[in-house]
Design a protein around this nucleic acid. Structure first.
Lengths: 225, 225
DNA sequence: AGAAGTTTTTGACGGTTCGTCAGATTGTTC
DNA sequence: GAACAATCTGACGAACCGTCAAAAACTTCT
């Protein structure tokens, strides 16, 4: 049996003294997380201070430390509390046929859903991405779990398209390709500014993403309407 | 004529009092940048303090403020001082034919070059990426310029592959596709950990990236050896 | 050499945030 | 409403911030 302290932590939050918070305590904790999220929309990760969160939540810094050891932990809790699951996106991928024009419209649908998903969580996700890039294992796990279902679904599409013939690739290779595609989709959103800098409209971006997606998943050129 | 104060700043650094530093001053400035880079390898962006840099450089915090208003500006200067140009990668793309098996090996070559490029600058680039995602315009420019040449080169490859026929796409669409591909390549490196978490070896990753690249640039399926 | 001027560094300081703790406040139970 | 438990906060020493005036190091000129 592995140590599941980290898993417990998710839905069994403790106060700094180790006891389980009650109704009121949990409400305060939730309020602190909400304020953290709100401030992260307005200010940079580096500038965000404990005292800012406390002020926003109309309480004192000491209260913050009652529930979280530091800001990083609060953001971890925030990421866990937020519904960062890509399963609905996985359903989009799985539920439909990827053949021909219909398949291409599924690709477009997925792109839209993913753009929306990332957009609606961008302020948390950009911090998660940084911490993962910094090698922070606590955030590593969250990000992996978040993308896991979508990646598996996409790997299945590749498997279907390949059929059962001799050219069939290994599970690992399909996961690699799916992962690469997810990485692309995820980070185009984060850097939409860069594309605007180059004068590229979002519509073209969306189309290009769908093209890359469709082509790499099915192995066929994207159908031109 | 546009305001080129920002451009001047790059190779015309000023002290906090507005005067040009001399030999010794520039040496100190450079040393501070070096220490900033070194510390960024060891500790997280959020934890990095001015006093850490000063200590590492065997000087006082006041000296740091003589050359940079804050840490963010030091990292900006660091990113500008570092050679973050993708032109050599652009040359890899441009110099060779993208047809058939030879083309696929160019794709592999590009993937390798890009992985190495990102790896060798990862600690700076992950901060640049965060700040760009936060909408920081000063870093926006750096990142765009950095990727500009490579993206243009890749857009040219798409144009070549499309020929001059009627199915030819617009310049903007080709830039969009190239940009999407660059986004993919760039960020797979940053999140290599995630792939290891899934048990995907780097060799598979490299192959998948080359596949996606080749397929999307040339419009043809990747040749199987 | 050394006086005069310039550049660079630093010690010192007031202000802010950090993280902790003991005690005050609020809520619950009997 | 008394006793107990949960929650909050004021207060504090430590660390870091950002600024300034003056010390120190270096250059130039006679």
């Amino acid at each position: 049996m592995t140590d599941n302290a980290a898993l417990e932590e998710v839905d069994d939050p403790r106060a700094s003294d180790g006891r389980r918070p009650g109704r009121r305590g949990l409400a305060t904790r939730t309020r602190l997380l909400g304020c953290t999220a709100a401030l992260l929309e307005r200010m940079s990760y580096r500038e965000l201070k404990v005292i800012d969160i406390a002020r926003e939540a109309k309480t004192s810094p000491a209260t913050f430390y009652q529930y979280f050891p530091d800001i990083e932990s609060a953001i971890l809790a925030l990421a866990e509390a937020t519904n960062l699951d890509t399963s609905p996106l996985g359903e989009v991928v799985r539920g439909q046929s990827w053949k021909g024009k219909a398949g291409y419209s599924v690709a477009l649908e997925l792109v839209d859903a993913l753009l929306e998903f990332w957009e609606s969580h961008r302020s948390v996700l950009r911090v998660v991405d940084l911490l993962v890039a910094e090698g922070n294992l606590r955030f590593q796990g969250i990000r992996s779990r978040m993308l896991n279902d979508l990646t598996l679904a996409m790997a299945d599409v590749i498997a279907d398209a390949e059929g059962t013939g001799r050219g069939r690739s290994s599970t690992q290779k399909r996961m690699a390709t799916a992962g690469v595609l997810v990485a692309m989709l995820a980070n185009v959103t984060a850097h939409r500014f860069t594309f605007e800098f180059w004068g590229i409209p979002t519509a073209d971006l969306r189309r290009s993403m769908a093209d890359v997606l469709y082509t790499s998943l099915t192995g066929k050129a994207a159908p031109r309407p």
